[in-house]
Amino acid sequence: KYLVLALYDYQEKSPREVTMKKGDILTLLNSTNKDWWKVEVNGRQGFVPAAYVKYL
């Protein structure tokens, strides 16, 4: 498993997404889509914009 760092705040806009705050450390679950990565944060799984996170 990889960890990624939230570069920006992101507010979920659909039930498939998750909210994150700048500085959050997220567990990367799937990065096959170049635009949306599946992550786990605070016990929830969902998608965030790939451009908003970077590998640690």
Rank of each mutant, 00 (worst) to 15 (best):
E12R: 12
Y10P: 02
I25D: 01
K38F: 15
T32P: 04
L5G: 04
K21E: 07
T27V: 15
Y8L: 12
T19L: 03
G46L: 04
T32F: 10
G43R: 05
P49D: 01
T19C: 06
S14V: 05
K13T: 14
T19S: 15
V39D: 00
K34V: 10
K22F: 05
L7T: 06
L28I: 07
W36I: 03
V4T: 04
P15V: 11
K54N: 09
D24Y: 04
D35R: 12
P15R: 10
Y8G: 07
L29D: 01
E12D: 05
N42W: 06
R44T: 08
A6N: 01
Q45Y: 08
S14E: 09
F47Q: 04
S31N: 15
N33Q: 09
R16S: 14
V4L: 15
D24G: 03
V39A: 01
V4M: 09
P15A: 12
D35M: 12
K1W: 10
V41E: 03
Y52E: 03
N42F: 07
V48Y: 01
V53M: 05
V53S: 00
L29W: 05
K34M: 09
R44Q: 09
R16L: 14
Y8Q: 14
A51N: 13
F47D: 04
L7H: 03
V18N: 04
E17S: 07
Y52T: 08
L3Y: 14
R44N: 07
D24K: 03
S31F: 10
N33Y: 08
N30R: 06
F47P: 00
T32W: 11
N33D: 15
Q45V: 14
L28N: 00
V53L: 15
L28Y: 02
R44H: 08
G46C: 02
K1I: 13
N33C: 10
K21V: 09
T27R: 13
S31A: 15
V48L: 03
K22M: 08
Y55N: 10
S14I: 05
T32M: 12
V18G: 02
I25E: 04
K21C: 10
V53T: 04
N42Q: 10
E12I: 06
Y55A: 14
N30P: 04
K1P: 15
T32R: 11
M20H: 01
W37A: 06
Q11F: 14
V48P: 00
T27E: 11
D9Y: 04
M20C: 06
P15Y: 09
K13Q: 14
P15D: 14
V41S: 12
M20R: 00
Y2I: 15
K34D: 14
L5F: 09
L5Y: 11
Y8V: 13
P49L: 03
W37R: 02
A50P: 05
L26I: 08
S31C: 13
K1M: 13
P49I: 03
K34P: 14
N42A: 11
Y8R: 11
G23R: 02
K21N: 10
K21W: 08
K54D: 13
Q45M: 11
T19G: 10
Y2Q: 15
K54C: 15
V48K: 00
W36Q: 03
I25S: 03
V4C: 12
W37C: 06
K1R: 14
G23D: 08
Q45F: 08
Q11H: 14
R16M: 13
V4W: 08
E40H: 06
V18C: 08
Y55W: 12
Y55R: 13
V39S: 00
N30V: 08
K38W: 15
K38Q: 14
G23S: 04
V4D: 00
Y2F: 15
V18A: 05
T32E: 14
L29H: 06
K21T: 09
L26E: 00
G43L: 05
L5Q: 12
E40A: 10
E17F: 06
N30T: 08
T27F: 12
E40N: 06
K54G: 14
Y10L: 01
Y10G: 01
L7C: 08
T27P: 14
L7R: 06
R16H: 15
L29C: 07
E12W: 05
Y2V: 15
W36R: 03
L5M: 13
Y2N: 13
D24W: 09
Y2H: 15
W37N: 01
T19V: 03
Q45P: 07
F47K: 03
Q11S: 12
G23Y: 05
L7K: 07
A6M: 03
P15F: 09
K38T: 07
K38G: 06
N33G: 11
S14D: 13
Q11G: 08
K34E: 11
V53W: 01
V48Q: 00
L26G: 09
L7E: 05
L26H: 03
D24I: 04
T27Q: 12
M20V: 11
G43E: 07
K34C: 10
N30E: 15
Y52F: 14
L3M: 11
L7M: 11
S14C: 10
Y2W: 14
W36M: 07
K22D: 03
G43Y: 05
E17R: 04
D9L: 02
T27Y: 12
L56N: 05
M20G: 00
Y55P: 14
P15G: 11
L56Q: 08
T27W: 11
V41A: 11
V4F: 08
D24Q: 13
Y10T: 01
A51D: 12
L29F: 05
L28F: 03
Y52K: 09
L7G: 04
E40L: 08
R44E: 06
S31I: 10
E40R: 07
K21Q: 10
V18I: 15
V4I: 09
I25Y: 07
Y8N: 10
V39Y: 00
K22Y: 04
M20N: 00
L3S: 08
G43N: 08
L7S: 04
K54Y: 10
V39L: 03
G46A: 04
G23P: 00
F47C: 12
K1S: 11
W37L: 08
V18R: 02
V48F: 01
R44I: 09
Q11N: 14
K21Y: 09
D9N: 07
L3C: 10
M20A: 02
P49Y: 02
L26C: 11
V4S: 03
D35K: 14
Y55S: 13
L7A: 06
G23E: 02
E17A: 05
G46D: 00
F47L: 08
K1L: 13
Q11V: 15
D35A: 11
E40K: 07
I25R: 06
L3V: 08
R16D: 14
W37G: 00
G23K: 02
E12K: 13
Y8F: 14
T32Q: 13
Y52G: 09
T32I: 10
G23C: 07
Q11K: 12
A50H: 04
D9C: 04
W37I: 09
A51W: 08
W37H: 03
S31T: 13
Y2T: 15
Q11E: 15
Y8C: 12
K1N: 13
Q45E: 12
V48G: 00
K54H: 13
P15C: 10
E12G: 15
K21R: 12
W37T: 04
T19K: 04
P49K: 04
Y55G: 09
D9Q: 03
G43F: 05
V53D: 00
Y10S: 01
G46R: 02
A51Q: 13
D9P: 05
S31G: 11
D24R: 02
F47I: 07
D35G: 09
T19M: 04
E17K: 05
T27I: 15
L28W: 02
F47T: 03
L29M: 08
L56A: 07
Y10Q: 01
D35E: 12
M20D: 00
V53Y: 01
Y10F: 08
L28V: 10
E12T: 08
N33L: 10
Y2C: 15
G46P: 00
Q45D: 07
V41D: 03
N42L: 08
N42E: 11
L5A: 07
L26A: 09
R44D: 04
N42V: 05
K1E: 11
E17Y: 05
T32A: 13
E40S: 10
A6R: 02
